[in-house]
Write a protein that binds this DNA or RNA. Structure first.
Lengths: 202, 202
DNA sequence: AAAATTAGCTTACAGTTGTAAGCTAAAAGT
DNA sequence: ACTTTTAGCTTACAACTGTAAGCTAATTTT
C-alpha cells in the first residue's frame, strides 16, 4: 500500500473512532485526544500527523455530517416522486436518518449550540444549505410567495430538527406521536404561509 | 450571623459563581468543581458541604433558570394587556430576556441537548411548563381548536427558542431581522392552526 | 544507489482534575 | 457549662490530560 493510501486509512480510522465514541452520554467536547487515538489504534502523539488539534478533527466531523444531510435530501426527493405526500415523506425520511445515525445527528444538534463559535458557524452553514434547497423547492412547488419561501423553510427545518431531537430520547411509540405532531405543525405553516394575505389578529 | 444564614450565603456564592463562569465559550460540562469553588471563595472540598457533586449543582441551576422563565411569562402577560399585540410583544419580551440573561438562556439551550439525560429531562420539564401555559392561553384567546392548542404552543415555543439561540450570536441589527422573521412564522402558525379545516395539499 | 521525507512509536513532563482523611473553631443543643 | 454538630480548611494522592523531543523504519525523490 502506498504511503498516501496508508495515511488516508489512518485518518479515516481517527474519524471513525471519534464518531464511534460519541454517544448519548458523551459529546465531542468531552472526547479526549488520547481516547480517540487509543480507539483508532495509534499512539497519542501520532494524532498530530493528521490533525493540528481536536478542533480540526471536530470541524471535519461536522463537514461529514453535513454531507450526509445533503444526501438525505436527495433521498427524500426520490421518495417524494414515488409517494407524493411531501411533508409526511420528508419527515419520515428524516426520522429514519436520526434514528439510524443518531451519533451523527447528535453531533450537529449539540455543536449547533456548543461552546465553539467555529463549530456553531460550521453547523449553521450545513443547515443553511439544507434550508436553501428546501426554500427552492417551496418556491417552485407551492403557493407560498417567493419572498417568504426562505423563512418558511427555516421554520420547517427548525421544527423538524427539534422533532428529531425529541425522537432521540423517545420510545418508538412516542416517535410516532412526534412524527404526527410535526406533520400537523408543518401543514399549519404551509397553510399559513400560503394564505399570507389575510393575516390573523395578533 | 446564624449558621444557617451563613451556609445559605455560601450556597448562593457557589451558584452565582457557576452562573458567572458560564460564557459563550464555556458550558456547564466544562466547568470544574475547583474553578467554581475558587470563584466562590471556598476550598475545593468545602463544595461538598453544599452539593453532592457537580450534577446536583447543575440541576439547581436549571431549576433557577426555569423559574426565571416563568417570571418572564408573567411579565409578558402584563405587557400584552397594555400593548395588545400578542405575538410581537411576546417575542420582544423573550428577546430582551435572552440578551439580558444570556448565560441563563444558554444553559437551558445547551443542556436541552446535552450529555446528561437528567439535565435534558429537567430542561424539558421547564419548557413543558412554558408550553402548557401558552397552550392554555391559546385555548382561551384564539380560534385554534382545543385539541391542537398544545401542539401549536410547542411549535411556537420551538421557533421562539430557536430565534433566541440565533440572536445570541447575532448583531443588534440582525436581531431585528430575526425578530421580524419569527413574528411572521408565528403568524403563519396561528393562521394555519385556526384554519385547520381546509388542509393544504401535502 | 543514495538522500530526503515522514507516519508512527516511546518516553517524559507539567498541569489539572475529583475527592479522601483529618483538623479547627464556632454555632447549636442539652 | 458541657457536648455535639458542622462549615470550612489543609494536605495528599492517583488518574488523566495535551504535547514536546527524539528515534525508527519504510516509502519517495533524486
Amino acid at each position: 500500500m502506498s504511503r498516501a493510501q496508508q495515511k488516508e486509512k489512518t485518518r479515516r480510522a481517527i474519524i471513525d473512532a471519534a464518531f464511534a465514541q460519541l454517544s448519548p452520554d458523551k459529546g465531542f467536547s468531552s472526547l479526549s485526544l488520547r481516547e480517540v487515538a487509543r480507539e483508532a489504534g495509534i499512539a497519542p502523539t501520532s494524532f498530530y500527523r493528521h490533525f493540528a488539534d481536536m478542533d480540526e478533527l471536530g470541524l471535519t466531523l461536522v463537514d461529514e455530517a453535513g454531507l450526509m444531510l445533503r444526501q438525505l435530501l436527495r433521498q427524500a426527493r426520490n421518495r417524494i416522486e414515488k409517494n407524493g405526500s411531501v411533508i409526511r415523506t420528508s419527515i419520515e425520511t428524516f426520522m429514519e436518518f436520526v434514528v439510524g445515525n443518531s451519533n451523527v445527528f447528535r453531533l450537529l444538534l449539540r455543536e449547533r449550540s456548543g461552546t465553539s463559535a467555529a463549530f456553531r458557524r460550521a453547523v449553521a452553514r450545513e443547515i443553511q444549505h439544507f434550508c436553501a434547497e428546501l426554500a427552492d423547492y417551496l418556491r417552485k412547488e407551492t403557493a407560498c410567495p417567493d419572498e417568504y419561501a426562505q423563512m418558511q423553510a427555516e421554520a420547517m427545518v427548525t421544527l423538524v430538527f427539534h422533532a428529531g431531537a425529541d425522537a432521540l430520547d423517545a420510545s418508538p411509540e412516542t416517535r410516532v406521536q412526534i412524527t404526527l405532531r410535526t406533520i400537523l405543525q408543518l401543514r399549519w405553516l404551509a397553510h399559513g404561509a400560503a394564505g399570507y394575505g389575510r393575516r390573523p389578529k395578533d
